[in-house]
């Protein structure tokens, strides 16, 4: 069974992936302008400040859009069809790409309330995903 492409953590992102491995969902907060951002960066994408802090996020959000995918973009998804690709708008504001899991793909709707779950894909990598709340 092929694995999906997995993240190779780097300077900006290592704390995020480390937290995910510990089943904590974290988000960056700018202490200078007060905005949250996703995905993690070395600076704030609103004001370019380097003064960012990691906060435990609520893990809640709603589906901004989704698509039920019937074609595998990579061999690692061949045994997962159909899967739900989705953009979730987090309660903190930013949006992120994810999968909606633990439900029938056809039951997913835009605006649906969702919560984070942790998929331990390998011993090293955990992917935050979302399920209906």
């Amino acid at each position: 069974m092929a694995l999906p492409p997995l993240p190779r953590p780097y300077q900006d992102t290592a704390p995020y992936w480390k937290a995910a491995r510990e089943h904590r969902f974290v988000i960056q907060h700018c202490t200078e302008c007060g905005e949250h951002q996703f995905y993690p960066r070395g600076v704030c994408s609103h004001c370019l400040s380097s003064d960012l802090e990691w906060q435990d996020a609520s893990g809640k959000g709603e589906v901004y859009s989704f698509s039920v995918n019937h074609r595998a973009p990579h061999p690692g998804f061949a045994d997962k069809l159909p899967f739900v690709l989705a953009i979730v708008e987090l309660a903190e504001g930013p949006r992120m790409m994810t999968n909606i899991v633990e439900c029938h793909p056809e039951s997913v709707t835009i605006g649906m309330t969702v919560e984070v779950v942790f998929d331990d894909v390998t011993e090293e990598v955990t992917l935050p995903k979302f399920r209906p709340a």
């Binding site: 492409p5 993240p7 953590p9 690709l85 990598v125």
Partner: peptide, 12 residues
């Protein structure tokens, strides 16, 4: 790395 692990594609 915040999209590809979830199976993003052009058509998706």
């Amino acid at each position: 790395q915040f999209e590809e692990p979830y199976g993003v594609s052009t058509v998706g």
